[in-house]
Every structure is written in structure tokens, then in C-alpha cells.
Write a protein that binds this DNA or RNA. Structure first.
Lengths: 231, 231
DNA sequence: CGAACCCTTGATGGCGATCAAACGCCGTGG
DNA sequence: CCACGGCGTTTGATCGCCATCAAGGGTTCG
């Protein structure tokens, strides 16, 4: 582990509240591994042997359907994933592959479950992490049911911007085809959706998205009221 | 609370593991209320004051969108709902209304959060409940993205049957329009979808669904492999 | 008995998927 | 250095699923 990284992982909401000693125990028995891009980390149906923490790189969670893969989440560092499978000790519902070269901390699932039982702070953090993830999924489900594809893209851009601290211009991570699948549309329609959004205050040049007119975009995308905000 | 009900609630996964004493404390400070049908219990955006436990009746969780309501879940007894909002102490993401006359146990949110901190068994159960709910939502999201509407209905029927212990014939709870919205379709298309399923081993008479040919239905609906099963 | 209301059935239209082809980018190899 | 080839994206044309609009049964309840 590189200097400054362990603190960064320790600062994650999931690990922040646990006793220093327990955390050391967990980290010392975990493996930090490097993976090349486009490598499958695990597949749906497998037993959840490790909690994964993406330290650096980019990871895609997806479900393989006959004909195509459906992207469920794009994981950016520093962030853990597949916590629910580890907690419940059940098979993965999703598969995972690296999009970019990635370094991932692998925390043995059994060890983590054991520490959760032992360390109240960790259990509390786990509970909260799951509850927040639950709410994210409720929002995603509503989004998919309520809005049409171009509106979903508009909201994705607004949310992404908000997560970047309000940055009006940013670069899309990964391939657009993956983003398309995440938003529940085809690459062709994503392309057209970007085209349509030009009329609503968004400009796009290659992978760089720029919000020219937030109000216009908000008016078009009808984002969730701030009272239900993500944060 | 009627005789036999308290044990039934106490047997819920959420409350099963907690200390008897703590459970008594929680129950004694909760309110069992009776609600008529079509009554709004709470609305999205409100603070989560109570964990709700549906003891008897039927409840719909939905999101109001301009033009229509989107059903997110149909809650059957005995079951708790909106746990994530209570745990995170954040506003409801969904609204709730009774579909049938219902009796609901209202557990003060602050009290529950306090007991979660105090009782390790309860915290563990809460964590598991959230993790299982998380996985349900992942499945719902893939279902919506991957399958078309008639297939979704087919899978709903298969899952419903499985939850009833394999019953091949059962009655749909609540209005079909609500089911339609839950499955992400219009009432008109739900009706047509039922019609189409007749060719795939399902008969429908009013609210009564009967699976005539499980294999045919499975072949059509392409259910998730059992390795990812709901249970 | 009538008036809602829900479900059903039919006709039409639009969003997004699919099919198809051209463009641009980038790495490889001549 | 440039030509080529592969791949992702874009653009265009068409198709199909599902939403919408509309109207007709059936049931329930006042």
C-alpha cells in the first residue's frame, strides 16, 4: 500500500468508525492487488469471498444478459462495492470488471463479517452504508420508471456535477457505451440524447461535458427536489 | 394489540434477535393504529418519524410524479417498511397509502435508532434487513432494464407463486392498475400482457391467476437462475 | 337503478431499439 | 512517417414495444 492510501481507506465512511485496532487487523489480512483493464474480477452467482475496495482505477458492475451486458454501477475510487453480498453471505448478484487499470483492496468476507460482529462502530457504519445504498437504488428505480432517456441523461449530468462540488465542466469516465447501459439506453440513443441536450444548455466535445446553462438543464431534466437530495 | 399478534411481530426477522427486554421497551412505546383504505400515511419529503410495521391490511409505497403515481412496492403483512429512511434519519423517498383497511404499528424513529445503538442483535437484524432489501432492489432494477413488460409480469407471477410456497393458483392483492405501475407499465398493457401469457401457460379469471404450465411460463419469462434466488 | 370506477379491447402514435453505414481516433506495422 | 485496420461513436433509416387516446363491458355502491 502506498503512503497516504491507508489513511484514505481508513477515512471511508465504512471504516471510519471502527476501533483502530480492529481496523489494523482487517487491513493486515487483506490483499491489495493490481488488475489490468478489462479483467473480470468476479461473476454473478459466485460466492462473495471478498469485500472489494477500489483504491485506484475504475470498475464496472454489470449483469450479463443473453445478448448484452447491463451496467448497474460505475465504481470510482475510493469506494467499496458489493457490501450487501458480503454481509448476507450470498452469491453476487452482479459481475465486475475493471474498466481502467485498477488497484483493489480485497477484504476477506468471513473476516469482515466476524469483525462486524465484534466492532460496534463497524456494524453501525455497515448498516448506514447499506441504508444509503438502498436509497440510491430507490432513486435509480424511480428515475428509470418516471423519466425518459434524455431526461435521465440530463439528471445524470446534474448529479455528476453536484458530486464534483458544482463543477460545470467535467470529463466522462469510461466508454460512453457503458454510460449508455447504466442509464438504460443504447449507445446510439445516448449519442442522440447528447445531441438533444444541446438545446437545453449542455455542450459535449468528445468525453468533455459542459453545462452552459444550469437553469435550462434543470428545467428540462426535472431533477428530484433538493429535499430528497442524495447527500 | 390482539392476542397472538405481538408474538407474530416479535418473530419478524427485524425484531427476532433483540433482547426480550429491549423489545418490550420498543413495543410499549409504539402505537398500533387502524387506518381506513385509501388513506395517505405519509408523503415523500417528510421526516421519517416512525418505522411502520404492517400488521394487517395492504399498503402501497409510491412516488408521485406529475401526471401519475409510480408504485414502488406493495407491502403485505406482516412486514416493516421504510426502514432505510428511519436508520439514516432522512426524509422519506416514497409516499405511502393504505390500499385496504390496515392496522399498522408505529415505532418512533428516534427510539428505534436509540435501541439499535443499544442492542447488538437488533442492529445486526437491521443490517441484514437492509442488505436483503438492497439485493431485492438490484434485482428489480435489472428486471426493469433487461426484460420487456410481459416477461416482467411472467416473472412476477413465478416469484409470487414461489413466495406462496409453490402455489399454482392465487389471487392478486389490490387493484391491477397498482400492479401495472409496480411492474412499470400501464393498466392497458398489463391487461394485454395477461392475455399474451395465456399462450405461455397462465390463465387469469378476474383477480385469480393460475399457472397451468410452469415450464412453459419459465421458458417464456426467463427467470433468474436459482443460484441468485430471492431467499 | 344509475353512476362511478375499473378493467378490457381497439386504434393510433412516439420513444427508443435495431439495423446499417460512415466518420474519427488510435495503435500497429510497413 | 504514413497507410492500414480495428474499434467506438455518430448519424441515418426502419421497426417494434409500449403509451396514449378512445370507447365499450362489468362490477360495486349509493
Amino acid at each position: 500500500m502506498r503512503a497516504g492510501e491507508k489513511p484514505e481507506i481508513a477515512r471511508l465512511p465504512l471504516f471510519k468508525e471502527m476501533a483502530e485496532e480492529q481496523r489494523e487487523e482487517v487491513f493486515s489480512k487483506s490483499y491489495l492487488q493490481v488488475f489490468p483493464p478489462q479483467l473480470t474480477l468476479f461473476e454473478a452467482g459466485q460466492d462473495a469471498d471478498f469485500l472489494h475496495v477500489l483504491v485506484d482505477g475504475l470498475v464496472e458492475l454489470y449483469v450479463s444478459e443473453p445478448g448484452r451486458d447491463i451496467t448497474m454501477r460505475i465504481v470510482e475510487p475510493v469506494s467499496s462495492f458489493i457490501l450487501a453480498a458480503v454481509v448476507t453471505d450470498r452469491p453476487f448478484l452482479m459481475s465486475a470488471r475493471t474498466i481502467a487499470p485498477s488497484r483493489i483492496l480485497l477484504v476477506p468476507a468471513g473476516l469482515l463479517r466476524q469483525q462486524i460482529k465484534r466492532d460496534e462502530g463497524l456494524m453501525d457504519s455497515t448498516m448506514h452504508e447499506l441504508a444509503l445504498g438502498f436509497r440510491d437504488l430507490v432513486r435509480a428505480l424511480t428515475d428509470l420508471k418516471a423519466r425518459q432517456s434524455t431526461e435521465r441523461l440530463g439528471n445524470y449530468i446534474l448529479n455528476y456535477s453536484a458530486r464534483m462540488g458544482g463543477e460545470r465542466e467535467f470529463e466522462l469516465k469510461g466508454e460512453k457505451r457503458v454510460l449508455a447501459s447504466l442509464l438504460g439506453m443504447t449507445p446510439e440513443n445516448l449519442s442522440r440524447a447528447f445531441g438533444s441536450l444541446k438545446q437545453h444548455g449542455v455542450s459535449i466535445k468528445g468525453p468533455v461535458v459542459k453545462i452552459e446553462d444550469v437553469d435550462a438543464l434543470r428545467a428540462f431534466a426535472r431533477p428530484d427536489p433538493p429535499s430528497l437530495g442524495q447527500f
